[in-house]
Design a protein around this nucleic acid. Sequence first.
DNA 1: CTGCATCCGTTATGATACTG
DNA 2: CAGTATCATAACGGATGCAG
Lengths: 111, 111
Amino acid sequence: MDKPPVPVTARCPVRTALELLGGKWKLLILYQLEQSPARLSALKARIPDISEKMLIQELKVMVDSGLVHRKNFGEVPPRVEYRLTEKGRLAMPVIAACRAFGQAYVRGLRE
Amino acid sequence: MDKPPVPVTARCPVRTALELLGGKWKLLILYQLEQSPARLSALKARIPDISEKMLIQELKVMVDSGLVHRKNFGEVPPRVEYRLTEKGRLAMPVIAACRAFGQAYVRGLRE
DNA sequence: CTGCATCCGTTATGATACTG
DNA sequence: CAGTATCATAACGGATGCAG
């Protein structure tokens, strides 16, 4: 019900990123949407251990921040598709960097 | 009571990164350590809104995961210096990507 | 199918005072 | 200065039932 006055403007850009992408699921959801647009049920299947509540909640947050677009087909039964926006694509390098880090870190454990 | 069998090995690398770098403070601390090694008090000064508890706690976690090195000079009064390890440097691209994302996102808001 | 609301336990985070 | 202990609160996350 409350709108934070100035959530993400004019500050340390790393903090901006943390606010927009932080949390347990946002990057993983964006990671899936990177491959292709998807419906809620498809996302749920691709991220098996996320609860439906968190999935919807995080999608809504990212729709509000402009990272994800929500397209309601207005059909019956309901059909809704989620896909990345242009802003959402800006997050792809972050995901790529995380992937690279994760791989390099694990590789380092085996040397 | 339960230990996850395989915490960070052999899994989605993005999740590995999230586990090691996730949370509100780790990236910000690493970001400061990127510039130069620093003592606890210096870090606290550079990250004004972190509590001492969280700073020490997160540093300890990252020492345990091998991202940060802790050097105790064994002097009186105490003197401890924190700096990045080689593994810690692997996270720098993630921070750079977050910076770039934050800047690009904010820039997008003004167009 | 998609989405929302509610209850509830766990975790994360913080303020403060204290120790060596 | 570096670190610990305690206590409180806020945020997170999950299960379930309900609605359009």
